[in-house]
Simulated assay, not measured.
Amino acid sequence: MSQQGAALQSYNNELVKCIEDLCTKREELNQQILQEEEEKNKLQNDIRILTEKLAKVNESLARKMATRNEFDRTIAETEAAYMKILESSQTLLTILKREAGTLNQVHESADTKDS
Rank of each mutant, 00 (worst) to 15 (best):
T51N: 13
A80Q: 09
L29T: 12
Q4W: 02
R73M: 05
E108Q: 15
E79P: 01
E36W: 01
E27T: 12
T112M: 13
A76F: 10
T102P: 00
A7K: 14
T51F: 06
D72W: 00
N30R: 15
A76M: 10
K42Q: 13
G5S: 12
T74K: 09
E28N: 11
Q9T: 13
I85H: 04
L86F: 03
T24R: 06
L29I: 09
T74V: 14
L22D: 02
Q31T: 10
T91P: 00
N58M: 05
E108P: 00
T102Q: 10
A80L: 04
L34M: 03
E14C: 10
E14Q: 13
I47S: 04
I75C: 07
Q35L: 14
T51Y: 11
D114E: 13
E99N: 06
T67S: 07
T94E: 08
D111L: 15
A100R: 01
V16W: 04
A81E: 08
C18W: 03
N30T: 14
K40R: 13
L103D: 01
C23P: 00
A62W: 01
L93G: 07
Q32G: 01
L34G: 00
L54G: 07
T91Q: 09
N30P: 00
L15Y: 04
E59G: 06
K53T: 02
A66V: 12
E39K: 05
K17W: 09
Q4T: 11
K17C: 11
A81N: 04
R48P: 00
T51C: 12
I33Y: 11
S60A: 13
S10E: 13
N104T: 15
E79V: 13
I47P: 00
T24M: 06
N104C: 10
T91M: 03
T94Y: 03
L34R: 02
L8E: 14
K17H: 11
A7T: 07
N13Y: 08
L29P: 00
D46V: 15
K56I: 02
E70I: 13
M83A: 05
K42N: 06
A6D: 11
L15F: 04
K42T: 05
D114P: 00
E87T: 14
I75W: 04
N13S: 08
E38H: 07
E39I: 03
T78I: 09
K84V: 08
R63L: 10
A6N: 12
K25L: 12
I75S: 07
A76N: 04
G101T: 08
R98D: 09
T102C: 04
L54N: 08
M83Y: 03
K53M: 01
T91I: 02
L61I: 08
N45S: 12
N41P: 01
V57Q: 10
A55L: 13
I33T: 11
S109H: 15
N104H: 10
A7M: 07
A7P: 00
E52W: 11
L86I: 15
K17L: 06
E20M: 04
E39H: 03
K40I: 07
N69M: 14
L103S: 05
R48A: 15
K113N: 10
L86M: 09
